[in-house]
Write a protein that binds this DNA or RNA. Structure first.
Length: 275
DNA sequence: CGTGTCACCTGACAGC
DNA sequence: TGCTGTCAGGTGACAC
């Protein structure tokens, strides 16, 4: 589920609501969700700690703690990190709760458990190899068109969509936003990366950034499980042009959208509008 | 190094 | 009603 716009929506709300808040205690209900420490140690570090702020890197949430630790949360496919009143019944598959001073709780729920949590010294965050090797943030000011063009100069081969999904190439794009960006840019998802023209690279740069920005503005995409940190669904699924819309008329030309598998992922596109 | 496949888990849904 | 198969937003290990 959660790609850059969803994770960013969660980050903004948690940062707004929890910065400066004290954690009374944390409770690990399923130890395997905490990847790099014992549950007991995790709970011990959390007790009486405080949240400074929430950052994001790609699809990872980074909760910065007063103690100099960082809580690294990846939501996988079905993970949710949200605020809840302590009195609310816990959803099934709730694996960690943080009780905050004042009766509110942050909860981590993940049906499929592809997600997980690391607790690290802030300076050791890059011990997570995915974070160490992750490509640039597409919405950073420093991510200029020239930087994007430079990614293509390494004479790579393979389907462009595969590269968009590869977090080492560019951070935060998953199946939804790869398909939506390629549609917006008018590029066929199976095109070999080496064949993409300068004009197309420029169009793709604009497409990725505008799609991601619009998705954030609309609160992300809720297909099945995604909810924001306030437990609400996003709205961008209603603006999808291709994702999940096989056989639906193309928004641009009206012919039915096609679908295929690329890099093992279902891919939907318009065979007339995307060359 | 690039790529295909499987594995990790559970649930929803289609078809019989 | 219930069985079986398929599919799902992600990523990492492994074989070739």
């Amino acid at each position: 589920m959660p790609e850059l716009p969803e994770v960013e929506s969660i980050r903004r709300e948690l940062d707004r609501s929890l910065s400066g808040k004290k954690i009374a205690l944390a409770e690990v209900l399923r130890a395997s969700v905490v990847k790099n420490t014992e549950a007991g140690y995790f709970e011990q570090v959390m007790r009486s700690n405080a949240i400074e702020r929430f950052d994001r890197r790609g699809k990872y949430l980074l909760g910065r703690l007063e103690s100099g630790h960082t809580l690294v949360v990846h939501l996988g496919m079905t993970g949710q990190l949200y605020l809840s009143d302590a009195s609310e019944v816990r959803k099934k598959h709730t694996h960690v709760i943080w009780a905050l001073a004042g009766g509110e709780e942050m909860r981590f729920t993940d049906v499929r458990r592809f997600g997980g949590i690391h607790l690290l010294d802030t300076e050791d965050v890059s011990s997570i190899s995915a974070l160490r090797t992750m490509g640039p943030e597409p919405l950073d000011e420093s991510f200029t068109l020239d930087k994007f063009r430079a990614l293509f100069l390494k004479k790579r081969s393979g389907a462009i969509k595969r590269w968009l999904l590869d977090q080492r190439f560019i951070a935060g794009i998953g199946n939804i936003y790869a398909d939506e960006s390629l549609f917006a840019a008018g590029i066929h998802p199976g095109r070999d990366i080496a064949s993409i023209s300068e004009t197309e690279i420029d169009r793709l740069y604009d497409a990725i950034r505008s799609v991601l920005k619009q998705a954030i503005a609309e609160g992300g995409s809720s297909i099945n499980d995604y909810i924001n940190a306030r437990g609400q669904k996003g709205g961008f699924q209603d603006s999808h042009k291709v994702y999940g819309k096989k056989d639906v008329p193309c928004a641009n030309c009206g012919s039915p959208l096609s679908s295929c598998k690329i890099a093992g992922r279902t891919t939907t596109y318009c065979r007339y509008c995307q060359k």
